[in-house]
Write a protein that binds this DNA or RNA. Sequence first.
DNA 1: TCACTCTAGTTAACGGTGTTAACCGGCGTC
DNA 2: GACGCCGGTTAACACCGTTAACTAGAGTGA
Lengths: 196, 196
Amino acid sequence: MPPFTDGDARTSIVEAASAVFAQKGIDGVSMRHIAREIGVSATALYRHFDSKNALLSAACEAGFAEFEARIDATARAAATPLDALRQLGGVYVDFALTHPMHYDVMMIRPHQWALGPNPERDPESFAGLIAVIEACQAAGQLAPGDAREAAHRLWAALHGVASLAIAMPGEIRGLEPEPVRARADAMVEAVIATLT
Amino acid sequence: MPPFTDGDARTSIVEAASAVFAQKGIDGVSMRHIAREIGVSATALYRHFDSKNALLSAACEAGFAEFEARIDATARAAATPLDALRQLGGVYVDFALTHPMHYDVMMIRPHQWALGPNPERDPESFAGLIAVIEACQAAGQLAPGDAREAAHRLWAALHGVASLAIAMPGEIRGLEPEPVRARADAMVEAVIATLT
DNA sequence: TCACTCTAGTTAACGGTGTTAACCGGCGTC
DNA sequence: GACGCCGGTTAACACCGTTAACTAGAGTGA
């Protein structure tokens, strides 16, 4: 009798890993811990995943997909490309603040988990950002120019706002969620102002 | 015969720790490794430091001090407060890019090492940034307003630029040192533009 | 000079980590 | 019925931070 009743083993493991991951944080998750959670020996996990990184990668995949889906949906739903750009800031930091663990793994220290962007091609969300900016330029809502550089600036601004809030939670006055969201909007406006 | 010939034990340990730290990275440094480097048992280190965190903290102190000194010197040397503000961006990312390990420990994941800003008071460099902005306002070079929020925006902008470059070294086109420095200046200008 | 204390090191050990190797029971298939 | 694979098991390795108990040696006061 296998210890996994509902669904196959792989998804059960991923769910257990996600649970521990979300509860104990990225640094507090161990293979033995995950295994204990589902009543199995630690080495059993290696039947389904090559390494801890592979398991964590699978556990984070859903979060990554959700992030890109949100960005994508925002870009599609907006009336104009510039509207999309204005809304992206809020969506970005909102995801970061509500999924700090995922954001940490994705953006703050991707090298530690051998996850993160693929060097070969731009990450989808970044490529999407470039596309939105190019659409703004094509529509005459932004001055023509280096869309990639503009995307870098926007990304850096939002990443700075989000990652400071995550890295130093409550340690510095002004890093609580509300000012953070407003600040993200302000940063987007500031960057847009340099592109018009 | 003690194994430490030049200087006292404590500084020898800190130097060895700094060397391993700079070479192997923050994740690759262990007490046993540091101890082996100076020909001593790992537990000997605990005669001089309460914990690994305490040792790393001491090893990073010089870097932290240098960072604050650079920020301070820049602010003092500038002709006007606004000039200081304009130069701070370059100084900031320059330190981050040339001391990525220190920047990592200081700003990117301070919680992991129980280092980083003291919740009780603003870190000196941040307080200094606020002071510069207030000086700009007093001199009529920036419009009056919330200096703390302005400092947050500037900090976030620079942190975003610097930490992206460190977290994803060379993985995304546009994160090489040169565009990064130029981007930092551009971000400072963008934020300043919202404050005039 | 003897005895004491303090310093700065030692080894052994504990509980934890990721990971590998060897084994083993049950199941499906030729 | 033998074979092999699938999905578990236990034992083990090398490492981690840290603690406890011990010890060689220097310094000091009686």
